[in-house]
Structures are given as C-alpha cells and as structure tokens.
C-alpha cells in the first residue's frame, strides 16, 4: 500500500520531470535552429569572402553552396536573402546566379581611361546563339556577349557556348576563348544561311539558354535586335508578356541574360554611378596635369579630354538609360573620350 507521502513524491517527480524535459527540449530546439541558421549565414559569408578575393585579385575561383536552394532564398542585388538573414555584397557590383557549384569571375569593361569591374558568379551555363540574319552585326553582338561572360577554362564549373540551329542540329561545347577565337572568326568569314531551331522545347528542358539575334520580330524567349554596332533592343518573353530593354553595351545584354530586369536595372545604375565618379576624378586629374610643365606637350589633348569629359558629366546628370537618344549621345562621347585618351597615352601623358 503506497503511503500519501510516497504518492506525493511520485506526482511531484513526474511534474518536475515533465517541466525539465519541456524546458530542455525547447532550449535544444532553439539551439539547433540557431545552429542551422548559423551554418547558412556562415556559407553566405564565405561566399562573400570568395567574391571579395576574386574582385581584388581578378583570379577566378569555384565555390560550393551546400543545399543552395535552402541556403539562398533569392538574390536581389546587392543583397543575398537567406531564411534567417540578409547579407549585402556591397560595395562589390555582383551578378549572382545561385547554384550548388558556382564559378566566380571578375569581368573588366574598359574604355581606355576608365575600367568598370563587375563580378559574375554563375553555375554551369549553356548558351546557344541563334543568329537569324547573315548581317555582320549579329556576329559582332555574339562576340561581344561572349567577351563579357566568364572564361571558365581554369574552373570546374563551366560556361559553354554553341551556335546555330539548322532546324534540329546545333553545335555546342566551346568555352569562351575557343568560341571567340575560332568559331565566331569562322562564321564571320563564311556567311551561312541559318534556320530557327525546331526543337526549342527540348533545348529548354536540357537547360540551354537560347539567344536569338534577328532583324525582325520573332517568337523567342530572349531576342536581340541590334540597331547599330553598339545599341539595340533585347526582347524578353515570359508567357504572354513581352518586354523590351534598350542596351548600350554588352554588359546590359549579359545582365538581362543572367538575371532579367532586376540585374539590368542594378547593373545600369552601378555602371552610371561609377562612370560619374570616374569622370569627376579624371577631370580633376587632367586639370592638375595641365598645370605641370612636364605635361606641356599634352596640353592641347588634355584640354580636349576635359571638354569631352564635361560633356559626359552633363549627360549623366539627366541621363535616362532607357532612352535611345541619351544612350546614343553617351556612347558617342565615350568613344570620343577614348580616342582622345589614346592620343594622350601615345604622347606619354596617359
């Protein structure tokens, strides 16, 4: 027969045990969650460190993101959004396409007196160019796009290019250097009649990004219509919606290809912001050099350089990168500034 005291001990013991177990389970549950979030944030911080290293050194590298879909919810430049935190990649301009294995590269866009550096971090990517015009401008556009994509010869993760659908045939597998130096050279010399791909859905399922270049309207997910050597329009079709984006240089096309409108807006704003900084600094530098006796032989060219930089500065103040006239004018000034700088460089003042 259990005494009252023994019964009391049992009941109190059970209550206390349940209480202790509940507290312990809640605490360890939160601790595990913290550990899981910590692991995700730690992965993203390591990714940021890898991006910083590539940005400062220019040496590309591979990076593995374990459980990429859970770790990175999405990338809204310049922020990587994880389930528990947001990590900013500022001040490095970065186009990041998440994947289990990604390759990080620095792309340099140079116009003589200024260099814009951008990071492209992409997983295995397959790009198939479909030029539907034998106009030379199509091949120049293809060359320009390939030039500003990562060169993955020394990384495990690959960006590969291909060309042409002759109804169902296509030629694929080159990395950047071979594609530019061998394939495009060949097609620039030999003009061939080209036909659209009939197996588009198959190619899409296999993960190919089709880039169609044409003079006319075409029903394609990603269509480029060049207007001149430098500018044109990219048409992106998603379902029933078709949107047009003006491009002024190949970086705009690459941004659209990798991340659509979000990347395009981000890259344009960052490009124009850094161009503004470069213009102001270069005007001051040229003025400083004008006053130096040793730079006397370059005074005339420096004065022309300052003049065109001031034109660029004024243009940037009311620039709309979606307006064709603004973009044409800016490109003309940039080309002129590049030519003048080349002369300054040849005179030994660059």
């Amino acid at each position: 027969m259990i005494s009252a005291f023994q019964l009391f001990k049992i009941i109190l013991g059970v209550i206390m045990s349940v209480f202790v177990i509940i507290i312990a389970m809640q605490f360890s549950g939160r601790y595990i969650q913290l550990g899981e979030s910590g692991k995700q944030v730690s992965t993203v911080i390591n990714l940021k460190k890898a991006i910083e290293d590539v940005y400062t050194s220019g040496v590309p590298t591979d990076f593995k993101i374990s459980d990429a879909k859970k770790t990175i919810e999405f990338y809204r430049p310049p922020n990587i959004i994880t389930p528990s935190a947001t990590v900013s990649l500022e001040p490095i301009p970065t186009l990041l396409v998440a994947g289990e294995d990604i390759s990080i590269h620095r792309i340099d866009y140079e116009i003589g007196w200024w260099k814009f550096q951008l990071i492209e971090a992409v997983p295995d990517t397959k790009i198939l160019f479909v030029p539907l015009t034998d106009d030379e401008s199509a091949w120049h556009v293809i060359e320009d796009i390939a030039k500003y994509m990562p060169s993955t010869e020394n990384t495990r993760t690959k960006v590969r290019f291909g060309i042409w659908c002759n109804r169902t045939e296509f030629y694929f597998g080159w990395e950047k250097n071979d594609f530019i130096n061998k394939v495009i050279r060949l097609f620039l010399i030999e003009k061939r009649v080209l036909n659209f791909c009939e197996n588009v859905n198959y190619l899409r399922k296999k993960g190919y990004k089709l880039v169609v270049i044409a003079d006319d309207d075409y029903n394609a997910d990603f269509l480029i219509k060049p207007k001149s050597r430098k500018i044109g329009y990219v048409y992106i079709t998603k379902g029933d919606e078709k949107k047009a984006y003006l491009y002024k240089n190949p970086l705009d096309i690459v941004s659209l290809l990798l991340g659509g409108e979000t990347f395009y807006e981000y890259e344009n704003k960052r490009f124009l912001k850094e161009l503004g900084v470069a213009v102001n600094a270069s005007i001051r530098e040229a003025n400083i050099l004008m006053t130096s006796e040793r730079m006397g032989r370059c005074r005339v060219e420096l004065a022309s350089f300052i003049s065109v930089l001031n034109d660029i500065k004024q243009k940037l103040e009311q620039m709309n990168y979606k307006n064709e006239d603004d973009v044409n004018e800016l490109n003309a000034y940039l080309e002129e500034s590049s030519k003048i700088y080349e002369r300054i460089d040849r005179l030994g003042c660059g």
């Binding site: 001040p91 850094e274 900084v277 600094a281 530098e285 400083i288």
Partner: peptide
C-alpha cells in the same frame, strides 16, 4: 595624379 584627383566622397561612393 590619380591620388591627388580623387576625393573622399568619390571613394565613399565606390
């Protein structure tokens, strides 16, 4: 010359 031309504000933007 570049060091003399660039300012704190420029570098802050970058």
């Amino acid at each position: 010359s570049k060091l003399t031309a660039i300012t704190c504000e420029d570098l802050r933007k970058l």
